[in-house]
Amino acid sequence: MSHWKKVCLLTEIPPLGARVIQHPQGDIAVFRNADDEVFALEDRCPHKGGPLSQGIVYGKTVACPLHGWQIGLECGTAAAPDEGCARRYAVRLEGNAVLLNTEAAA
Score class of each variant (00 low, 15 high):
residue 2 S to C: 01
residue 100 L to N: 11
residue 80 A to Q: 09
residue 15 P to L: 11
residue 40 A to H: 07
residue 20 V to R: 04
residue 73 L to P: 01
residue 1 M to F: 06
residue 33 N to W: 01
residue 46 P to Q: 15
residue 9 L to D: 14
residue 17 G to C: 04
residue 45 C to E: 05
residue 27 D to N: 13
residue 40 A to L: 08
residue 53 S to T: 05
residue 23 H to N: 15
residue 80 A to K: 12
residue 59 G to Y: 05
residue 5 K to E: 15
residue 72 G to N: 14
residue 67 H to G: 09
residue 17 G to L: 07
residue 35 D to W: 14
residue 106 A to N: 14
residue 103 E to H: 02
residue 45 C to K: 08
residue 68 G to Y: 12
residue 14 P to T: 11
residue 39 F to M: 04
residue 40 A to K: 04
residue 11 T to C: 07
residue 104 A to N: 05
residue 96 N to G: 02
residue 79 A to D: 10
residue 95 G to L: 07
residue 96 N to C: 02
residue 44 R to Y: 13
residue 102 T to M: 01
residue 98 V to D: 02
residue 15 P to Y: 04
residue 33 N to T: 00
residue 77 T to N: 10
residue 82 D to P: 07
residue 31 F to G: 02
residue 87 R to Q: 15
residue 68 G to L: 14
residue 16 L to F: 11
residue 50 G to M: 08
residue 21 I to S: 02
residue 59 G to N: 09
residue 39 F to R: 03
residue 28 I to F: 09
residue 37 E to I: 06
residue 97 A to P: 01
residue 97 A to M: 01
residue 29 A to V: 00
residue 29 A to D: 00
residue 82 D to F: 15
residue 88 R to P: 00
residue 70 Q to F: 04
residue 60 K to G: 02
residue 21 I to F: 06
residue 20 V to Y: 04
residue 40 A to N: 06
residue 52 L to G: 05
residue 81 P to F: 05
residue 97 A to I: 00
residue 14 P to H: 10
residue 10 L to F: 13
residue 40 A to P: 06
residue 78 A to D: 11
residue 28 I to V: 14
residue 62 V to K: 05
residue 41 L to W: 05
residue 17 G to D: 06
residue 30 V to K: 02
residue 74 E to I: 02
residue 2 S to E: 07
residue 97 A to N: 08
residue 71 I to W: 05
residue 61 T to V: 05
residue 36 D to Q: 10
residue 105 A to F: 02
residue 54 Q to D: 03
residue 53 S to K: 04
residue 25 Q to A: 10
residue 82 D to N: 15
residue 14 P to M: 12
residue 26 G to E: 08
